[in-house]
Nucleic acid binder design. Sequence first.
DNA 1: GGTAGGCTATTACAGTCGTCATAGGAGGTC
DNA 2: GACCTCCTATGACGACTGTAATAGCCTACC
Lengths: 192, 192
Amino acid sequence: MQQVDAPRERIVAGAAEMISRRGLNATSIRELSKHAHAPLGSTYHYFPGGKGQLATEAVRFAGESVARSLRRELRVGPREGVAAFLALWRDIVTGTGFRAGCPVLAVAVEEPPPGDVPEAVLAAAEVFADWERLLADALAAHGADEVQAAQIATLIVASVEGTVAMCRAQRDTGPLDRVAARLDAIIAAVLR
Amino acid sequence: MQQVDAPRERIVAGAAEMISRRGLNATSIRELSKHAHAPLGSTYHYFPGGKGQLATEAVRFAGESVARSLRRELRVGPREGVAAFLALWRDIVTGTGFRAGCPVLAVAVEEPPPGDVPEAVLAAAEVFADWERLLADALAAHGADEVQAAQIATLIVASVEGTVAMCRAQRDTGPLDRVAARLDAIIAAVLR
DNA sequence: GGTAGGCTATTACAGTCGTCATAGGAGGTC
DNA sequence: GACCTCCTATGACGACTGTAATAGCCTACC
């Protein structure tokens, strides 16, 4: 068992990728099935919750995969961890010819239907909070005071998300480079 | 002439608003016409370029309206200008119950069809660059060195865009507050 | 061999989309 | 009054959407 390309995982990963490129609303289940080489029928079989469930799982999938890399790289130090965080996004943006961004941001940016908040948006909120916590803990563990650590962690996540979008629009990594330089200086100044 | 609610302007403003809520792809011309109290026929009359033209003009409209406020507030000083910039977005987010964000970001986050870059994305790039320039100039004029000014200007725009999306997902202004505090400290430290 | 159950293929549904064409009306100018 | 130009109304088109139901296959166990 546990074969690498279990269709279910392939579909979720494909959903994350497609959402990161075209946004949630432009990602249709039909095209997604084609892109993941899965039949439309089985997509609804694996995700009876429909598009909402698919979006939720895609957000969590992408969030956890970034968090894993963040946890690993933060162990060598906050500055190195943040540099790796930036590099990760830089690779995504350049590796796709400025076509892909962050799927978590993509679902965060669609209006909830009046009344309730869709599950996928809640998942996006959790992912952002998770990344912030990882960063804040690493900063605090290296001598930053708690309040500043939390502020800087939010600043890092927010500026990375924004920068990725700016790079896509401008088709240039200049924004990412400038933000990387400044964030590193900010972190260095606050560590003991 | 020059009546305030010229239908054309109403449509553009409505497009900016709808895009800032639901994203570009989920904004249909039919619903937009209804929302702007304009007939579908006249929407195509005023914007023969179709949805692309509408998106482009909406991005430029929103970009210029933010730039105007930024120019005004930056005249009293960089710290005050940035505080007003943050406050502006804060009002948008809270005033809409966390439903609206930035229309410029929203169009920047949709994959261009293979081959060419749609005009609206180019407009988004220009708007971002415009905001950056305004901020960088103000910082440099108050004693920041040129390179740092450019880096910080990008950091401000990027973190604001990201923070707005985070606030929407988390349905809380905490991220905006933390980023505002940290940005102010960063700017204060770099001014002469 | 037989049978049950998880997966796939196909088709249908009711909507909405962007876009266009065409016909109507309102207003001003000769 | 006639005319011409700008705006509006209506309806049609083909394509696409999310979702569901149905019928078939294929594999694993008894």
